[in-house]
């Protein structure tokens, strides 16, 4: 319902009648007039929360754009040093998980408990797969001394492996790769944190779905979580080209 219509058309009196005799669905909270109002409020709230998240990541993206502009060569070399194949696999895994999540929402809407549980479980598994691959990537970076901080080493960028057609960076530019890796770890780390929180909630949803509440009309928690999960996915869709694909041919 649009804003204007809620202002000009107050709810019909029948709704009050139904409220008085308590005919509303089991999941309706006492302070809402109708289940519709509750559903709208919840999804509006979720969208606002995602707006907050956009601003949160926005700060990081702003920093990224600034430094990429300043230290482009360093960003290219550092970007080439991270494992694009793993990133690509992760992208596919995450898109897959978005698909299973969308299917989970659909299953809840058609009130199929079995399917809902299968798709939620699939989303959890894909989520863990993503995090597993990410851990592998982090481990590589650790082994290569590409983690910002005291052990950071620019050797690989000043003296690239012979045989690769990597451009050697001068020391001052190579030092700036640390900024790239700072942003890489900050951005993918915050993203991974969102994944971990998401998987936690997913497991909770899976647990509560056994009672069947989500498949008897109370779709809204699944739907809202779906929004969150897709958002996390979209953030990755931005992160992948920005971090892995700078100047790939």
């Amino acid at each position: 319902m649009s804003l204007a219509s809620t202002i000009t058309n107050p709810p019909e009196p029948e709704i009050h009648a139904s409220h008085d005799v308590h005919e509303h669905p089991f999941y309706q909270k006492h302070h809402f007039e109708t289940a519709e109002q509750q559903r709208e409020a919840a999804s509006f709230g979720m969208w606002l929360f995602l707006l907050t998240e956009i601003m949160f990541f926005g700060g990081l993206f702003f920093a990224y754009l600034l430094y990429r502009n300043w230290y482009y060569d360093a960003f290219v070399s550092a970007s080439n040093s991270i494992n694009m194949v793993m990133g690509l696999i992760n992208t596919i895994v995450l898109i897959g998980s978005s698909f299973t999540m969308a299917m989970a929402v659909w299953s809840a809407e058609v009130r199929n408990k079995k399917l809902l549980q299968i798709f939620l479980l699939a989303t959890v598994v894909l989520g863990f797969a993503f995090l597993g691959i990410k851990t592998g990537e982090y481990y590589d970076k650790f082994a290569e001394h590409h983690v910002p901080g005291a052990s950071f080493d620019i050797h690989d960028f000043v003296h690239p492996q012979p045989g690769t057609n990597e451009k050697a960076l001068s020391v001052d530019m190579a030092n700036k790769t640390q900024i790239f890796f700072s942003l890489y770890f900050a951005m993918t780390g915050v993203h991974a944190l969102h994944m971990i929180i998401g998987i936690g909630i997913l497991i909770g949803l899976l647990w509560y779905s056994r009672s069947g509440i989500y498949t008897e009309g109370y779709v809204q928690p699944i739907e809202n979580f779906g929004l969150y999960w897709h958002f996390v996915d979209i953030v990755w869709i931005f992160l992948f080209p920005l971090l892995y694909l700078i100047n790939r041919h």
């Binding site: 920093a63 430094y67 300043w70 230290y71 983690v147 910002p148 901080g149 005291a150 030092n175 700036k176 640390q178 900024i179 890796f181 700072s182 942003l183 770890f185 900050a186």
Partner: peptide, 12 residues
């Protein structure tokens, strides 16, 4: 952990 986004000595 010493990331350098605001650190002028690292180019931040």
């Amino acid at each position: 952990i010493g990331i350098g986004v605001f650190d002028p000595t690292k180019g931040g």
